[in-house]
Every structure is written in structure tokens, then in C-alpha cells.
Amino acid sequence: MLKVDGIDVHYGVIPAVRELSLSVDKGQVATLVGANGAGKTTTLKAIMGTLPAKRGTIRYKGEEITGVPADRRVGMGIALVPEGRQIFSRLTVGENLALGAYHRKDKEAIKKDREWIYTLFPVLRERINQLAGTLSGGEQQMLALGRGLMSHPELLMLDEPSLGLAPIVVVDIYEVIKEINRSGITVLLVEQNINMAMKISSYAYIMETGKIRTEGAPNEVMKRENIMKAYLGE
């Protein structure tokens, strides 16, 4: 589904991600974990296309998309629910959702997706005319997820969806992520909260200072990590 091959991503002259490769299979929940500042967000933005990859290639469904601008990638079925939600706070909930489907013309299907999102997050329906900036943190995360889903993605990337949320809300959000995956959407999840993420994913990457440190099945990766920690005393 997604194959990232040896990409470098810079901020101006400062490198943030170096020679990073990863791949995500169709239908999978893959997860990318790592400490703060490891380069996870940068990686997702490069996949989304809002940051350019200086080197390497990004392939999606067999097609190279390295040079394709972000807005066209949305049309190809890639969506990113960004870190810190980045909903449009001065727009209403309804307008935020409508913008998720910005590139789509299929009115009927849009309506169906909207209904589905309302069943996932009933609270959004009640808040439809409210300014997004006035929602609670959990509701904003739901809106960000809903906005991402409105683009009818095949690959949904989630950047720290649990950040700053109460534990109960996190559990809810993770239930929904599972539900989304069951509906056939491939998920690439970024988390600092390892345990939660590992539980629902079938493949894991661990990032450290701009590179992938280890990868594999979640339980194996966890084991290896624990051994490393024991050795290195981290």
C-alpha cells in the first residue's frame, strides 16, 4: 500500500529525518513510535506531502508520489489527522467536516460517510453549528478524525491521537480506530504512548533521532526493546 524508501526530510538546512524506509500493507494497522523529537510527525508530513522529501521515494499503491503536492494526495486516498488536531477553530463543526470532503464530487457517498461519522461520534452531530474552537479537547480530536474520514481515505495516518486526552476518552478513540480499520481503511499510527498503540497494531517501527531503530511484530519489538533497555540501561 505505502512504501517509503530512504527519504531525507529537512527543515531549512536542519535534517529531521534521514534515510527512513518503512512500508504499510493494505488493511494493516502499522505503528510508528519513538521519543519526542524523533521525527515521527516529520515523517507523516512527508508522506502527506506538506513537507518535501529531499531524497528517496514514496510509493503509494504502486505509484510514485514523491513529487505530488499534498492536495492531490488527498484525492488519491491519503489522509492525515495531524498532531495537535489542527482543526479550523474559526469554522463550524459542519464546515470542518465539509472541508474534509473538499476534493470529492460524489454527493450521495459524502452524505453516507457523514452519517457513518455521526454514528462513530454522535456528539459531532449535536455540535454541527458550533465553532470548532469551542469544542473540548476530546471533541476536537473526534472532529479531526471525522474530517480525515470525510476524504474517504484508503490510508489514514494518525499523529498522536491520544495526546492530551483523558484516559477514558483515549479508550473511546482507540475503539473507533479499530472500527475504522475494520471497515477496510489502512492505518498508520504514530504514538508516544507505546502500550496502547502496540495492542492494536500488527507491525511496529521504532524511531530514534530521525531513523528507524527497529521494526517487526509488536510483541517482538517490545521484547527487543526491553532487552536493549536492560543492556543500555535506558
Binding site: Y11, K45, G49, T50, P52, T66, G67, V68, P69
Partner: peptide
Amino acid sequence: WVGSLGGKKS
């Protein structure tokens, strides 16, 4: 405005 604008190569 990180990255490119629509149309051109990233």
C-alpha cells in the same frame, strides 16, 4: 508554507 504550493514539484 512548508513545502510546495499546488502544481509544482515538492
